[in-house]
Computed example of a mutant assay.
Amino acid sequence: TPTWAIIMIFMWVGLYLIIGGINPIARLFEIILPLTVILFLVVTFMSIKIFEIDNLRPVLGEGITPVLKGVKTTALAFSGPEIMLLLIPFMNQPKKAVKALLVGVSIPLIFYVITVVMVIGALSVDGVVTRTWPTLDLIRSFEISGLIFERFESLLLVVWIMQIFATFTITYFAAALGLAQLTKKSIHPFMFGLLPILYIIAMIPKNMNDLFKQGDFVGNIALFLFGLLPLLLLIISRIKGGKYETIT
């Protein structure tokens, strides 16, 4: 199947979902989350038979500096909590937004920790750095005979695709809603207008290297827009608020 056909169908389904607004998006995510948790944990912990604790040692053997240097690299993986800034107006209980954000960030954080520990424990650090998709390679590295499925990478790919779709739909909706509010227009024209732009952006990478470069670019932009910029805006709002209170 041509790449363009897969991307177009993926985007059309996403457009169909977001046209209904935030409610169908939330309902879909409520279905995706338990499926993701169950399939991910089952598939991941099946690799325990090839897990070696010695592959994780020494922890912080080169100090904390390499860990801090890796923050920039992981910016793309941790982008997403900024969506909560958009979802707060839709909440029935906005005062619980902080709790919801902490829970929402903690879930993928736990997944990431489990993935890193299991992958490095099974494949070792040297084995991980030489692979493009080490998590898939981990799942491919073992078989369990006698079950309906003897190879489980297909189950992991199902989870992966669901998460990609979830990320695409909510960010697509956020972009359309943001433009609609900025221009004070209806959201639907922006939903349809963004579709060809997103398709062109998706088709820019021609190979795996281009894809990783695009991912690094998005991660760097996210680090600034959703890491540094909100902090700056918070400081400005505090300063202006303080002046206002003093004047009144």
Rank of each mutant, 00 (worst) to 15 (best):
F165W: 01
A222L: 09
N207I: 08
Y199R: 02
S186W: 07
A222D: 08
F212N: 06
L223R: 00
T183M: 09
L198R: 00
V218A: 13
L228F: 11
I201R: 02
G193A: 10
G227M: 09
I221K: 07
M162I: 04
P196S: 07
F226C: 07
K213M: 15
P205I: 00
L211M: 14
Q214F: 13
I197M: 08
D216F: 05
L182F: 13
N209G: 03
F217Y: 10
L177V: 04
A180T: 03
Q181S: 05
N209R: 00
I170T: 11
G193H: 08
A174F: 14
D216N: 12
I164A: 13
L195G: 06
L179M: 15
I204W: 07
T167Y: 13
I170V: 15
M162C: 09
M208S: 11
M208A: 11
F192C: 02
I200H: 02
A175R: 00
G227L: 10
T171E: 12
N209D: 15
H188S: 12
H188F: 14
F192A: 08
N209S: 05
F168E: 00
G193T: 10
Q163V: 02
N209Q: 10
L228N: 00
H188A: 12
I221F: 12
A176N: 06
L198S: 12
H188R: 11
P196E: 08
N209V: 14
Y172A: 01
T167A: 13
L228T: 11
F224E: 00
F192I: 14
I170L: 03
L223I: 02
I197A: 10
N207W: 06
Q163T: 04
I187Q: 09
